[in-house]
Nucleic acid binder design. Structure first.
Lengths: 174, 174
DNA sequence: CAAGATTGACACTTCAATCTTG
DNA sequence: CAAGATTGAAGTGTCAATCTTG
């Protein structure tokens, strides 16, 4: 491992340490929401009511929408977890906390009695609407505002390559 | 916020989600250590016995070593926390868990009775020695191996710019 | 009082085990 | 039995309060 490689890894780890904390801090201070709260709110709305492609503010699992997702109006917990790249357990617990705060509701799914659908409550929708500009401003301040457009393009490419992972890199071999 | 900016943010958030999980998984499977375990072991050794400059495998807080660090042979908890960019509380709890597993020991500091020094136990040293090659291999697989040298250089620059943050970007204005 | 460090309460996350329905 | 989802136990992390020593 060359010094350059070590340096890159350390730089990545450091940014991961500080950048998320800054945005989470802005969000928490401005709205009382945590990042996981915001991610779930945004993902539920996006799945229930698909936006223009490419306009997700939240992390997107490399796996596309799952086969049986039945994305229209019926947001299954597993579909949501898969789309977000979260474990079911993680999402289940997060939904529990958010249900206590009345930001989401779980209603029994009519098409499959084994589980529930997730819905935004009115309070959840309001919280999301209020949080979006805060997140956008914070990302602008701490992320996009710190980089040139060229750097943003390069970073996107780099992140995509890393996300793809070693398995999917067989042939292209660098 | 342009589509390009949103895309970059989403790509970053996704990579943060999957990359750390992959390395943590390799480390856990190969050694039974968690990433925080490894980070603390490596940071304690690095502070107690400073290595060649630039060869930190663990995240490095932008703040340099603190004034009263007394880095030689006497690793104060606060100095360790500052150097790692961790809160004292976080480090205190992590040290508690690692002390239970006998990877570190807290001994009362002779020069200042208010606190303890942290030391690696023999088991801790062995664990660190065993873990280092595992981490290096994993980073090679999931990180450096996925990128060209040019990309690694660009990424380092980008991360450094992000870490610096908006406060320290006053004059250079882009 | 100020600094070093820990603790209580709570939020977040994972793994394996569990319960329920198809 | 297989899939959807939750839960128990333990690790991880934060904030504010606390305790102790300088």
């Amino acid at each position: 491992m060359t010094a350059q490689h070590q340096q890159a890894w350390a730089a990545y780890r450091t940014v991961r340490l500080v950048l998320d904390a800054r945005v989470a801090r802005d969000l928490e201070a401005g709205t009382g929401l945590s990042m996981p709260d915001f991610d779930v709110l945004a993902a539920v709305r996006a799945l229930a009511d698909p936006p223009a492609p490419g306009s997700w503010l939240v992390p997107l699992s490399p796996t596309g929408p799952r086969p049986g997702a039945r994305t229209a109006h019926c947001v299954r917990v597993a579909a949501l977890a898969d789309r977000m790249g979260w474990s079911r357990s993680r999402l289940s617990r997060q939904l529990g906390r958010m249900e206590r705060r009345s930001h989401v509701a779980r209603v029994p799914c009519e098409l499959d009695g084994r589980g529930d659908d997730v819905e935004l409550t009115d309070a959840g929708r309001r919280a999301l609407d209020g949080a979006e500009p805060v997140v956008i401003a914070s990302v602008q301040t701490h992320f996009t505002g710190a980089l040139t457009d060229a750097q943003l393009g390069a970073l996107t490419e780099i992140c995509d390559a890393l996300t793809r992972g070693p398995e999917e890199r067989g042939a292209e071999e660098r």
